[in-house]
Simulated assay, not measured.
Amino acid sequence: MAFHYVARGVICDGNHILLVRAVGDNMTFLPGGHIEFGESAPVALARELFEEASISANVGEFIGAAENEWLLDGQPQAEINLLFEVETGLSHRDPVVSNETHLEFFWVPCKEIEQWNLFPESLRALVKQQQTPKQAFWGSGIPLKSV
């Protein structure tokens, strides 16, 4: 089993949100990446955005968290995604070029998020709101099991 501790940014311009995916994959994610040991989530997010796409980011308010689990090559995977508002000055009219050949970034209209296979799936409702919730968001893709 592998556990992933991840910081992700909600980067919006108007009614568009920035997504990322592995080239050739149909699943998309919010931009960000793994938090290294001893690193705070906002610092990790700013670092990942700059490493992956030379995005200079002002990481803002904590929005919430989303957990998820899945199988990868038959092995159980689990993740906690910490979500933050991010200001970048980017425009949805301008492409975001990846520094990593295996990733591609693109803008999508928030109201069309269901068509873009965003994971964790629980984030789709958050994106459709097009505004930050008044209390911290919690989303889960893990089925509730009785103890």
Rank of each mutant, 00 (worst) to 15 (best):
Met1Pro: 03
Met1Ser: 10
Met1Phe: 04
Ala2Glu: 15
Phe3Gln: 06
His4Met: 12
His4Asp: 09
Tyr5Thr: 05
Ala7Glu: 08
Gly9Leu: 02
Val10Pro: 00
Cys12Trp: 00
Cys12Leu: 08
Gly14Thr: 09
His16Ser: 13
Ile17Gln: 03
Leu18Tyr: 04
Val20Asn: 02
Val20Asp: 00
Arg21Trp: 05
Val23Ile: 11
Gly24Cys: 11
Asp25His: 13
Asn26Gly: 01
Asn26Ala: 06
Met27Val: 02
Met27Gln: 12
Phe29Lys: 05
Glu36Trp: 08
Glu36Ile: 01
Gly38Lys: 10
Ser40Val: 15
Ser40Arg: 12
Pro42Gln: 14
Pro42Phe: 08
Leu45Ile: 11
Leu45Ser: 06
Leu49Glu: 06
Leu49Arg: 04
Phe50Gln: 13
Glu51Gly: 00
Glu51Gln: 11
Glu51His: 13
Glu52Ser: 09
Ser56Ala: 11
Ala57Lys: 08
Ala57Arg: 06
Ala57Asp: 12
Asn58Lys: 14
Val59His: 03
Gly60Phe: 07
Glu61Asp: 14
Phe62Leu: 07
Phe62His: 12
Ile63Trp: 00
Gly64Trp: 03
Gly64Ile: 00
Gly64Pro: 02
Ala66Trp: 00
Ala66Ile: 01
Ala66Lys: 00
Glu67Met: 06
Asn68Leu: 00
Asn68Lys: 00
Asn68Ala: 12
Glu69Ser: 14
Leu72Ala: 10
Asp73Met: 06
Asp73Tyr: 09
Gly74Ser: 14
Gly74Val: 01
Pro76His: 11
Pro76Arg: 15
Ala78Gly: 14
Ala78Pro: 01
Ile80Gly: 04
Asn81Phe: 09
Asn81Thr: 14
Val86Gly: 00
Val86His: 06
Val86Tyr: 09
Gly89Asn: 13
Leu90Cys: 10
His92Asn: 14
Arg93Val: 11
Pro95Arg: 12
Val96Gly: 03
Val96Leu: 04
Val96Asp: 02
Val97Arg: 09
Ser98His: 12
Asn99Pro: 02
Asn99Thr: 09
Glu100Ala: 06
His102Ser: 12
Glu104Asp: 12
Phe106Arg: 01
Trp107Gly: 03
Val108Lys: 02
Val108Phe: 08
Cys110His: 11
Ile113Cys: 03
Glu114Tyr: 09
Glu114Gly: 01
Gln115Arg: 14
Gln115Ala: 15
Leu118Tyr: 13
Phe119Asn: 07
Phe119Pro: 00
Ser122Leu: 00
Leu123Thr: 07
Arg124Asp: 05
Ala125Ser: 14
Leu126Trp: 04
Leu126Gln: 04
Lys128Val: 08
Lys128Gln: 14
Lys128Tyr: 10
Pro133Gln: 12
Lys134Asp: 15
Gln135Asn: 13
Ala136Met: 05
Ala136His: 09
Ala136Tyr: 13
Ala136Val: 08
Gly139Thr: 09
Gly139Ile: 05
Gly139Asn: 07
Ser140Tyr: 10
Gly141Arg: 02
Ile142Val: 15
Pro143Ile: 06
Leu144Gly: 05
Leu144Ile: 12
Lys145Arg: 13
Lys145Leu: 08
